[in-house]
Write a protein that binds this DNA or RNA. Structure first.
Lengths: 197, 197
DNA sequence: GAAAAAAAATGAAGTAGTTTAAGACTTTTA
DNA sequence: TAAAAGTCTTAAACTACTTCATTTTTTTTC
């Protein structure tokens, strides 16, 4: 039987780092939950305790917090082949500070807290998978948190375009501004300036 | 026989997340290399390929890059019971962009790339240890990279003092400025303002 | 496909943080 | 322990970015 496209995607993602037998693949898939989110709908909201970590098989979502003034700060855009969620809340079982909202109709595969633990018991190789996944994420976050502090807004925009050419055209300028960390007005000025260059 | 203080420290750190038998502890210790760095000496410099990941048993070091203008940007201060190094270079074997310099006479335990891999073969539980270690680091980096973008310099200073009261008094204002992401002059103004409040 | 809602562009006035320069204080080194 | 080197403070002029207000353009909704 042909595997579903979404299952094939997540298996490809995992087997980039570890090998799995057919049986292990089936076992893994059986621990996942399919989720669909319509554009503008929330996958999760601040105040809730995160029940799942997600892998995106289709669409685009934004992960953000609201500051005291109610302004959004986007920490990531998640598209196909990305992992997302709020790991802090997922691990500590404390209420999340994040919202995750679909910016396009999206499809995801979620793993619950219980199944995440079960996964490590049943297929210990997944400790290695997550070790490598987190290690790579850590490397890119370390880089980003330095850039956030050392580059100007214009440089951060150019860097974002270079690094995520496939994302930049799928999101609004307003959301991009909330990611870069500036006002939509200044984002507009930067974009028109950079395009004139 | 009494274990060395430095060995006890690293074993305590590891056994916070995983259990180890006496034999496993000895095996682990045997894979580590002791390193001492005098104040102002480099543990590593940009351009080198990182050979070790380090655990600090004594002292304080700063991890930083230099931008095009030659200004330092400090990404972390590492003190006792912290892990440090350049994971990107350690993993990819590409030359590092980082400098690590001791701000006090320091002592570390290093694990080489070869021994790091060997460790996973000999004691697979360490995949779990590093999975959890990286997961926790990731959570704090995600938080920091949001703060870098959404807080003012003054708020970042207050947050640093709150979070690392034991570090703030061990470093110079100049280095703190290079961490917060502002000039030493503006750091001086912030500190005198905050102290007046 | 018209009306409503949201996003983007533009400009003027304000604030957070930089630059440069000079003097006071502290630490390092011989 | 004196000299040198580095760190900290203060202030004035400057730049990156914000705020607020208005208009135009694009997207959504019925």
């Amino acid at each position: 039987m042909e595997p579903k496209h979404s299952h094939q995607l997540i298996i490809d993602n995992v087997t980039r780092f570890i090998d799995l037998t057919e049986l292990e693949k089936q076992k893994y898939i059986s621990l996942l939950t399919e989720v669909k989110v319509k554009k503008k709908a929330f996958l999760m909201q601040a105040g809730e305790v995160t029940k799942y970590e997600y892998f995106i098989t289709k669409g685009c979502l934004k992960v953000y917090t609201l500051d005291e003034e109610g302004s959004p700060h986007i920490s990531m855009f998640a598209v196909e082949d990305y992992w997302t969620g709020d790991m802090a809340s997922f691990m500590t079982k404390e209420p999340s500070h994040y919202f995750i909202k679909a910016t396009e109709d999206s499809e995801l595969l979620g793993i619950s807290r219980a199944n995440y633990e079960l996964l490590f018991q049943e297929i210990p190789k997944f400790e290695r998978f997550y070790r490598i996944l987190y290690q790579k994420s850590l490397i890119s976050y370390i880089r980003r948190s330095n850039q956030g502090i050392s580059l100007t807004a214009e440089e951060r925009y150019i860097e974002f375009k270079r690094k995520y050419p496939n994302i930049v055209n799928r999101i609004t300028q307003k959301d991009l501004a909330a990611y870069i960390g500036i006002t939509p007005e200044f984002m507009s000025k930067i974009i028109s300036k950079v395009n004139r260059m």
